[in-house]
Amino acid sequence: MTATKPEMRPTGFAHRLARWIDWIVVALILAVLVVVSVTVTGFLTEYNISNLLLQSSYIGILAIGEAFVLITGGIDLSSPAIMAMGAVVGAGYIVAHPNQLVLGILIMVVIGVACGIVNGLLVAYVKLVPFIATLATSTLLGGLALWITHSASIAGLPNSFLNLAGSLGSIPIPVIVFAVVIGLSYILLAKTVLGRHIFYIGVNARAARVASISVERTQVMAYAISGLSAGIAAVVLTAILGTATAAMGQGTIQLAIISAAVIGGVSIYGGVGSIPGVVLGTLLLTLIGNVMSLNNVSYFTTYMVKGAVIVVAVSLDRFRRLK
């Protein structure tokens, strides 16, 4: 009778690194925090901190939705486009009907969920590769948003809506929304049957199918959750910016949310990840951006650093798989 085999435990630098990776991220955040708060002037101001948290809020909400999809073993490249789509339609409605604020917000969220469900159906039932399916819907929605707005930004939102970017006490409302999203998504992923199913299909979809878990339904739910998060982010970002444009979905947001999730321990190979991790990853990423802009680091250097961070994050994911 052989007992468990200790020689199976891999050794070597990469493996040792793998075991400590999550703590390394936490330590990095703390180290960066300490260093910048001492050395960088203007970091520890109330204005800058709230700015940092505001930025984290919509990136984090998107990254949390992305995490659900990544854990199933898929990828969602359309969340910024979905966010922009929800934002321009909802904002357009609110500008036209300033007294139907709640309905306008609801439109943003519902558009998010609906687009997510379409992604899910394409992946689960039409069996498209997630990368292609969501790249296609992203392009389609981007074009649609431009067409609807004629490339113009939608301004003239009522103060009642813009107040959503204000503060409750001393805490910005987007940060409160972020906190609520964190709490609910944590419970959903870690405590419920749906969350468990998302992990099962990410770890071994074939075994899940044999155990009569509906892989397809779970996939649709994951993409719907990602869409929902894009809808919520649409509300938050529109309030922060004061306008809605089709350009909201462009630029490096997509890479930012995937790298936030991956830095936070979500595997792009599926099956692994946690909400607290995603939150930490988001904070680290926005922190880096924030510090660079405080130091007047040039636009292209910022890009280079962010690109390097992504390379490091994905490499870390490889190491984690060795664990």
Partner: peptide, 18 residues
């Protein structure tokens, strides 16, 4: 390994998966 075990999960969710 192909279609029985959830290798990257602990024993607990493996036992209750079905």
């Amino acid at each position: 390994r192909d279609d029985g075990l959830f290798a990257k999960m602990s024993l607990r969710p493996n036992v209750t998966a079905a």
